[in-house]
Structure formats: C-alpha cells, structure tokens
Write a protein that binds this DNA or RNA. Structure first.
Lengths: 277, 277
DNA sequence: GCAAATTTGTTCGTATGTATT
DNA sequence: CAATACATACGAACAAATTTG
C-alpha cells in the first residue's frame, strides 16, 4: 500500500471537513502555525497541503489575513443558441440582457472600445481575410452584479466600412444591434452562426480583470456569424471564467425552457458510473 | 517598483525560452541542480519556478527522468450540433465516427457497461424523475488514436424498459443507434436536445483514465434529448479533457463546413485588444 | 537481475520580507 | 508602531522512480 505523502493526507482531511460542512463556506481556516501543531508537521508541509486545496479552488489565502474556504459563486448560465437570424444568444444584444434579468441579476456593459487593426490569425481565418487585411474591432467588458463576467471582442471586415456602414466606428452601443444595422445599411442578413468553444488558461489581463488565479480556466468562444451568401460577416470572441459560467446550446426548435435555478445544482461527490476499471 | 519574486523571474525566463523555440517541444530542461547553479538560486526556488511552469501546462516533470517541455496535442474538434431529429452530434452514434475519420484519426469505443440505479440528482432533474425512480445507464469509454478521449454515460427512464424497449439492457453497441431503436419500439421521436456545457476539475477516476493531472480541467456536457411531447427521453453526460478538445455548435441551417486542420491553429501570444485598462 | 548513479519528490528547520489589522 | 499571518528563500537530508552499467 503506497502511502500518500503527508501534505496530501492533510489536504484530504481538510477537504473532507469542507465538504462535510465542518468548515463553513467563507470560514477562516486555522493559521499555518495552528495547523502545524494540529497535524504535527512542519510549516512548509502545511503550506504544501494548502496549496493543493487552493489549486482545487476549495480555499483561497489572503496575505496578512489567513486562508478562507471559498464561497461557491452561483454559476451563471447563458443560453448561447437563439434565433439564428437575430443577434441574440451568447451575451450579445437584447437576449443577453433578458437572460440576465430573468435570473434577477444586474448586468452592466462598458461602452465599446473601437480599433482598426490587422486581426490575429485565428480571426483572419474565420473572416476569410488575406494576411494584410484590416478589420474593425469592437471590444466590451461585461459585469453582472458588479462582478466581472466577460470580455468580448467583435471583428468586422474593413469592407463594411468602405461600403457605408460607418457607424461601426462609433464607440457607442449600437442600439437595435449591429446585425440589424448591417442589414439596413448593407443588406447583409445573418443566417446563422458557428460557435467554437475552447478552454485555456487566462493571460495576465484576464487574470486582473476577472480577479482570478492563473490556474482558473476560462472559456474562449469564437462565434462566426454567416450572411446569406454563407460568407463570414463577423467574428465575436468571448472570454469568461469557466468556474462561474455554464453554457447552454439548444438544438432543435420548441424545446422547453431551461430552469436556471434548479439545474445548476452541482453535486461535489455523487456516485459516478466510472468507478471500476 | 515592486520587484517580482525570484522563482517567478526564473519561470518567466524559461517560459520565454520555450516560446522562443530555444527549448524545443519535448526537449528536456536542465536538471534542478544545473538550473540551481545557472540561476544561482536554491533548489527549492528552482522547483517553485518549475511548478509554476507546470501549472501553466508548459512543462511536465517525470520522477527520475527530468522536466520536459510539453508537446501540444493537436486538439480534437467535435461538431456537437447536427440534425436534431437524428442521434448525431456530440460523439454519439455514426456522426461521431465520421467526424473522426474525416480528420484521419482512428476511433475506438468500448462495449457499454449497463447498470440500473437511482441516478444522481442532476440527472433526476433533467429526466424529470421522482427522487426514488430508477434509470438505465449505459456507460462507454472512447479512444482516438489509442488516446483516451471521453467518458460517456447515457441515462434512460426505467419506463422505457417496462414499456418494451428491453434491448437497452443489452451490454452491446446498438447498431442503428438507440434513438432509432426507441422510435421503432416505442414510437418515441427525438425533436431536439439541449447541451449544458460546464468545466470542472477531474475526479480520481477521470485523472487515471485520461492520464491527466488534477489541475487539467475537463468538459462535462449534459445533453438532454427531448421527444415529440417535449419530455426528456435521455440524458447523456460526456466528460473529456478540456486541453485537447474543442466543441463546435452550429446554429442555423446550411453553414459552410468547418475546416478541421486550419482553424485549430492556436497562437500562444497574439496581440489581444484587452491590453489597456 | 542487480547495483549504482541520476533525478525528482517529500519533509524538516530557519530566516527574512510583505501585507493587513 | 506593533502584532499577526502569509510569502519567499535558503540549506539539508532522505525517499522514490528511472536509467544505466
């Protein structure tokens, strides 16, 4: 029986205390010195155990204060699919706001920052632009209940501007939405979109904005919208922390409404069918 | 100017060497002792730096061997949306196989393990079952190119068995697919499904099966299929490592085919529009 | 197959720095 | 300013895994 290292045993013991409720959400753990005598281990060993728990997201330490059991944020659930012909879905435009108020939360959106630049390769590919082509970029930050929620950047081909859709350059919220605007001005209709869902580590800006550690994964969703000619008309990149966000995609019409409250209940330890080999 | 801690500086130096190509993919880093003299730091400090890089997924250490630059696995891309009326999409049935062969990869699926049990709460909710109701569970493991790829469990209401769909209890692959079978035997038609996409840490079984560390996030996708009465007829839970998997959802008909090879190119460091505050 | 050498893993002790109260 | 608590850094010893002779 290969005995587990001591720091792992200590971490497991504390984990059980947290999951069993002996250590309440938000409660402060004993100090490192106290744990040191409690488990008869050196301070470094205690710290290794706490690092382990921190990596699992069960606790967080604050210098000068102590180590605290993390409070599980009620995860925010977004329905990403919607009428393909509208701008809805995925935290864009009106449907984002309604989904949020439905869940009794307070959404905010910063005014967009607008730039013109040669986009990164993964955007070039998706917009089917040549290497040196420029694109208009509209960047926004979203908050829910004053908690940083998502960073969003939309890219449009520079063509749209030269053909008359100059409002894309205005650094203000487009009121009926950019899709409606592009339809009116250029006759470009959205027939659908493709979401490419990835998960990765946050970069430093994202860590700062979301106030998350480097090891908290984030969703990165590339949404490519297509027009009536099956040409990409927009790529929207949304980044949000994966620990407090869940995505819903409905395929097929006329599905029942998802219940936001109920189904987000996540059991930490339920019997899984993959126990045996 | 708050100077960064030494282990962070060392980690950054090595990170730049990796990203700049001085340390090739799969190459072995100098030993801890060598790094110790190279950076004039203690072995523990070197180890802290390496831990940092390991947390970022840039390197991995093997006891007795050394520390190696990780080789980026070509991420596997799955189109999750498909004809809502068929069984396709999300690594179920035929479409899973075709998507995989299209990318010139070799798929495998274990024969299902069948159980009858009271399902965990999140399944009860989704199948709209009372607390004590049982369900049939079919569990499978999937490999691609001999690499563990996903763990999948489908839950069906026990009703289906008593009403005649007894083949669900047979521990063998359903050849035309369970959806086709249920339609034929019970007249139950699938009109669509809802995918609930979450990300979390793997449990111990998942760590073993996928051969991943505890800090490699996994996708957990709950797919609820609905029948012509808008009742849930099946819930499929798919778990797969988030670092080597990407999901695609197409909303709207008649979108162009995604290009598997091209668009998976991920730039480690491209200019992001969220640099300033 | 065994033993030695190499390399990482764990644990201790100690000292000093930094953030918060 | 002082006390408290976590963060960083050093050195040392032994254990465990792997490769090599």
């Amino acid at each position: 029986m290969a005995q587990q290292p001591m720091y792992q045993q200590i971490a497991d013991t504390i984990r059980r205390q947290i999951e069993g409720g002996e250590l309440a959400r938000g409660a402060r753990l004993p100090t490192e010195l106290e744990l040191r005598s409690a488990y008869n281990a050196s301070r470094n060993t205690i710290r290794d155990a706490i690092k382990r728990l921190a990596a699992l997201g069960l606790v967080e330490t604050r210098p000068g204060q102590g180590t605290f059991v993390t409070v599980n944020v009620d995860p925010f659930v977004t329905t990403m699919s919607a009428d393909p012909r509208s701008a809805a879905g995925g935290g864009e435009g009106p449907s984002y706001l309604s989904a949020v108020s439905e869940a009794h939360r307070k959404p905010e959106t910063t005014t967009p920052r607008v730039e013109v630049q040669i986009p990164p390769p993964e955007i070039q590919h998706r917009l089917r632009l040549p290497d040196d082509a420029q694109a208009v970029l509209r960047h926004q930050r979203r908050l829910i209940d004053d908690i940083p929620w998502s960073l969003q950047t939309s890219y449009y081909p520079m063509d749209f501007i030269t053909k008359g859709a100059t409002d894309l350059l205005i650094a203000q919220d487009m009121q009926p939405g950019t899709i409606t605007y592009l339809n009116k001005v250029l006759g470009v209709r959205q027939i659908g979109y493709r979401d490419w869902v990835t998960v990765r580590q946050p970069n430093e800006n994202e860590q700062r904005f979301f106030n998350i550690a480097h090891d908290t994964a984030v969703f990165e969703i590339f949404r490519t919208a297509f027009d009536q000619n099956k040409s990409p008309m927009r790529v929207t990149v949304t980044v949000c922390p994966a620990d407090r966000n869940q995505l819903i995609y409905d395929i097929g019409d006329d599905l029942p409404d998802p219940k936001y409250g109920e189904e987000t209940v996540r059991e930490e330890t339920h019997r899984k069918p993959d126990e045996s080999d």
